[in-house]
């Protein structure tokens, strides 16, 4: 865990994430909670989350091609990556966001660590 944080700081990574939700549905709430916990635990201060309620801002759904809710989009680092659902599986989300790719030699260890956390 410490190793992760140090590595992250060293690389000076910044995570820009956007979560599209529909109103305050149970699924939306679940996704917001899951994302905040996940970022807190794994990205520490290196992230920023924007929550977009497409019910209030329909044009955003159109502009960003959102079909499903909740949808998580990684805006930074570039090349958008999308995860849909309540983000229940932390390991899957991190994998999709490409968190482990950033670790060089420690990638395997990281993955193991995440797997552990994910199941916990």
């Amino acid at each position: 865990m410490k190793k992760t944080r140090r590595l992250a700081r060293k690389e000076r990574l910044r995570w820009e994430l956007r979560l599209y939700i529909a109103d305050s549905s149970p699924r939306s709430k679940l996704a917001v909670g899951n994302l905040r916990r996940l970022c807190e635990q794994h990205l520490k201060t290196q992230y920023r989350i924007t929550i977009v309620d497409i019910v209030r801002q329909p044009s955003m759904a159109c502009a960003h091609n959102i079909l499903a809710t909740p949808t998580l989009v990684r805006v930074l680092p570039p090349k958008d990556t999308t995860v849909v659902g309540t983000l229940a599986d932390t390991r899957k989300v991190l994998q999709a966001l490409g968190v482990q790719v950033e670790g060089e030699k420690g990638a395997a260890a990281l993955e193991l660590g995440f797997a552990h956390i994910g199941h916990a």
């Binding site: 529909a22 549905s25 996704a31 019910v55 809710t69 999308t82 849909v84 659902g85 899957k92």
Partner: peptide, 11 residues
């Protein structure tokens, strides 16, 4: 698109 957990097509 990666999927995890439930979702809908509200978008």
């Amino acid at each position: 698109i990666e999927e995890t957990g439930e979702y809908d097509l509200e978008g």
